[in-house]
Simulated assay, not measured.
Amino acid sequence: MEYYILAFIFFYIFIFLARQACEYEPIFFIIGIAPLAFLAVFRGNVGTDTSAYLEIIRATSESTELVSIEPLFYGLSAGLMFLFNNEKVVLAVFGVLITLILLAASSKLEKSGTVFGACVIPIFYQAMTMNGVRYGLSFSIVVFATVFFLHGYRKSFFFIALLAGLIHLSGLMLAFLFYIFFVKTIKLQMFFMVLLTGLLLAVFFSDIILTKIPSYMDFKSPSIFSGTSIFLLSLLAIYVLGNLEGVGFYLSFRAFWIIFIVISSFVLSKFSYAGLRFQSLILFLIFLVMQYKIASENIVVKNRNYMILIFIGLLGLGFNFNNYINEEPDGESPFIPFKFVWAEQSDGLN
């Protein structure tokens, strides 16, 4: 655990420096995230789903079957396995790609350290690079797509979002929800809202659509308190978003539908693991919308709102650490104790 704590202390120091010296923000952001990236790239068999991903990547080099769902990830895995012939190296390359894409996007989004530094990296970075690599790569590509949306290149935004969806379907949904938030016409928003509701019902309550849904539905919600932590973080994030938008935001249809999907995903988390996954997607969406608003409208984030964002990030980080501690220590690849890849190699030789 000490490696994680020290890396985040280092990260927060440079995030605070970045806020004080805005002109050097991209440089401070890169320096700050470096220890976290180092842990992600040079980890051993660490991360709840790491063992599963190593098996998936290994299988891509041994199979010639065409994958119909999320084919781009499998194609990338097969190509990288052809180049490196080592699934651990391929997984590390994915971690590097996710980090570089996030850094490239943040350098183009004004004041990216405000939301990305305070919330997204503390809450999501380790899961994106050390656990759910598919969704991590997909989400980072969607973040990059918002740069094109910012500059008015809508077709490029949709094309890149489609690529993200070919890596992980949740990336396409993230981009879709992001687009809904910025649709100007209420009628269109209502149409998309109804469409989204229909998709949610189809995805979460059908065992026919998509072969991966049954596997999600097999995972029951761990307890009655499942999803409570993410629900709390989402409400706090909506509060900050409302402060940035102004008082009128809470009376708008946009506020209604984003609160609606937050509550809906919370309810779903009581019945299915899929609900927990959707909760994380919605929280990421709120942060993405917030960062985009700050960049597109050059909003000055007041210290009070910034400290709330810092609190949200630290609270989310605390929830993550608590999950690490409560993980099954005998699992194939728990988050703790942390092991570097060379330590595992030396253990294997002894």
Rank of each mutant, 00 (worst) to 15 (best):
M290F: 09
G318N: 05
E70F: 04
E332R: 14
G316C: 04
L17P: 14
F28P: 11
S140W: 02
F182S: 03
F157N: 03
E297D: 15
V89Q: 09
Y216Q: 00
I121H: 10
F231T: 06
F204H: 08
N323F: 08
E332K: 14
L251S: 15
I282V: 08
F278N: 02
L169I: 10
M190N: 02
L163T: 03
G79W: 05
F249N: 05
A255S: 12
V203K: 13
L166P: 08
S346T: 12
A34N: 06
S138E: 10
F116W: 12
Q189P: 07
V46K: 04
L196Q: 06
V183M: 10
A255L: 08
F158I: 05
G227D: 07
Y273S: 03
A118D: 06
G75V: 01
L285C: 03
G32R: 04
Q291W: 03
F338S: 05
N298S: 14
G132S: 11
K220I: 06
R154D: 14
S269P: 08
Q189K: 02
A175P: 13
F260H: 06
F10D: 02
I180R: 07
L210H: 02
G117E: 03
L17S: 14
R19D: 15
Q291T: 01
K108H: 15
A127D: 12
Q20E: 15
F191I: 00
E327N: 07
E332N: 15
K293C: 08
L314Q: 12
I101V: 12
L285V: 02
T228Q: 14
S170Q: 09
L210E: 03
L109C: 10
L210D: 03
S252F: 01
S51R: 08
F253A: 04
M173G: 12
V67F: 13
N131F: 03
Y306I: 01
F159E: 09
A92M: 05
S77A: 09
V194Y: 04
F225I: 07
N322I: 08
V41H: 09
P214Y: 00
Y306F: 13
I160P: 09
V240L: 12
L236R: 04
V41F: 11
I33S: 11
L244W: 09
T64M: 13
L66K: 13
S280N: 14
F82A: 14
L39F: 00
L137H: 09
L235I: 12
N131L: 02
L166F: 14
L232A: 14
P35D: 04
F181L: 10
S215H: 00
S138P: 13
G248R: 01
Y306K: 06
F38S: 11
Y216M: 00
G316R: 00
K270L: 12
F231Y: 14
G132L: 05
L163I: 06
L39K: 01
V46C: 07
S265R: 05
G242E: 07
L137E: 11
K187S: 11
F124K: 00
A175W: 01
F116R: 10
S296R: 12
I208Q: 13
F144M: 09
F191S: 00
S77I: 00
R277W: 00
K187I: 06
K108A: 15
F148C: 03
L109G: 08
A295Q: 09
L172T: 05
M130C: 09
S346Y: 10
I261D: 04
R58Q: 15
C22F: 15
I160C: 07
L210F: 02
F205T: 06
P71T: 01
